Simulated scan of single mutants.
Amino acid sequence: MRKVLITGGAGFLGSHLCDKFIDEGYHVICMDNLITGDQSNIEHLLSHERFQFIYHDVTEFVSIEGDLDYILHFASPASPIDYLKIPIQTLKVGSLGTHNLLGLAKAKNACILIASTSEVYGDPLEHPQSEEYYGNVNVIGPRGVYDEAKRFQESITMAYNRFHGLQTRIVRIFNTYGPRMRLNDGRVIPAFIGQILRGEPLTIFGDGKQTRSFCYIDDQIEGIYRLLFSSYELPVNIGNPKEITIIDLAKEMEKLSSQSIKFNFKDLPKDDPLQRQPDISLAKKLLNWEPAVDRAEGIEKTINYFMNLPKEALYKTEHKRFEKHIKR
């Protein structure tokens, strides 16, 4: 039976990948230390005969018994609230963690897919962003701990590819949303949904004219899956190219919620990108992939998911094991 290791498997993207590979008939090993992941995301899989959960921090040595066909490295804080609170752990998981998993892939002769991010482009001077763009990143700014962790992650992955002949894939993930996100992790759509459900004003940073492009989780997972089984070893953008300003998104969600909502404007965070839109020409050509879920449909599905959660979930901010990692 084909076997896949998914790190960060109890997180938002990771848990959906676990579902995908279970559905495709794989034996799935989910590895997570639950700093930002949540075991409730994989609760439905724990009794499955082809699913195994391992509580482990990938910045420590990683060992898996038996054969291993694929590794998907998705362990990393991914929201500003998280990586600004645990900056050193964020850098360690992108460097030490990636090194450990590349070593494991080499030992097992496994293909490894690395989850990178659109943040490698920083506050881009090129628009939309193609894979050939090198980015505009402030390496010593507060966001640099995440941006540079991911840029290093790509560099060491390509070093293993070129020096050791390792089979590697790199996905540059653009803003993604859907069920299982944390409402209060600082990312735009879940933050807006949480505020709407709590009856609070929507927080808009700056004048709200900065742009983002939002991809629904089902589309993102399909793109990642197709990339893994391609033979392409350089980075590929996976995201939705339909760009929208934050203020227009807020108005769109106000309309979807069928209620009058106030806006609360705050100063724009340092180095917050003013534009974010993927050029997905390569993914279209290489993977025959492009998003299929309309934003309004995806947001409605996401709102319905959160409406069915217990009320206390609307106020949950951090996980039980989060605080002990802050000083590491």
Rank of each mutant, 00 (worst) to 15 (best):
P241S: 10
I193R: 01
T176I: 10
D219H: 05
F214G: 08
D207T: 08
G194F: 01
Y177H: 09
F214Q: 13
A191T: 13
R172I: 08
M181R: 12
I193T: 01
I238V: 09
I221Y: 13
F205T: 10
P190M: 10
I173G: 00
D207K: 09
G239N: 13
L202I: 12
M158V: 11
L197T: 04
I224L: 12
R182Q: 14
D218T: 09
H164M: 13
T211N: 05
L202Y: 02
I173K: 01
G206N: 09
I244C: 03
I173F: 00
Y160M: 11
S213E: 13
G194A: 05
G223E: 06
G239A: 13
P235Q: 09
S213Q: 12
T168Y: 11
S231I: 13
N240S: 11
I224Y: 11
A159L: 14
Q153D: 15
R182H: 14
G165P: 10
T245R: 10
V188M: 04
F192G: 07
L166Y: 03
D185W: 08
G178N: 05
I189A: 00
F214I: 06
I238N: 07
D185V: 01
I224V: 12
Y160F: 15
R162D: 15
Q153P: 12
L202A: 02
D207V: 06
V171I: 11
Q153W: 15
R187P: 03
G239Y: 10
R172N: 11
Q153F: 07
R187V: 02
D185K: 01
M158N: 12
L234Y: 14
D218P: 04
F174E: 10
P201N: 05
R180L: 07
R172Y: 10
L227R: 02
I238P: 10
D219R: 04
C215P: 07
G206E: 10
Y225G: 01
E243K: 09
L227C: 04
I246F: 08
E243A: 08
F192A: 02
E200S: 02
P190A: 06
Y225E: 08
G194C: 07
I196T: 04
Q210M: 03
P241G: 08
G223F: 00
E243I: 13
G199C: 08
F214Y: 15
F205C: 06
T245Y: 04
E243T: 13
L228C: 09
G199L: 07
R226L: 11
L202W: 11
R162C: 11
R198T: 08
E154S: 06
I196D: 05
L228R: 11
Y225T: 01
V171T: 09
Q167D: 15
L166V: 00
D185Y: 05
E222G: 02
D185A: 07
G165V: 02
T203S: 07
I217N: 00
G223C: 01
I221V: 15
R198P: 12
T176P: 13
K209P: 03
Q210F: 08
A191M: 14
A159G: 12
F205N: 09
I156T: 05
H164W: 15
R172T: 10
Q210G: 06
G206K: 05
L228Y: 12
N161Y: 15
F229A: 00
R212K: 14
E233D: 14
K209L: 13
D219Q: 08
C215S: 08
I221H: 09
R162A: 13
R212G: 12
I244W: 01
H164S: 11
M181F: 04
K209D: 09
D185C: 04
T211G: 01
N184E: 10
K242P: 02
R182W: 12
I173Y: 00
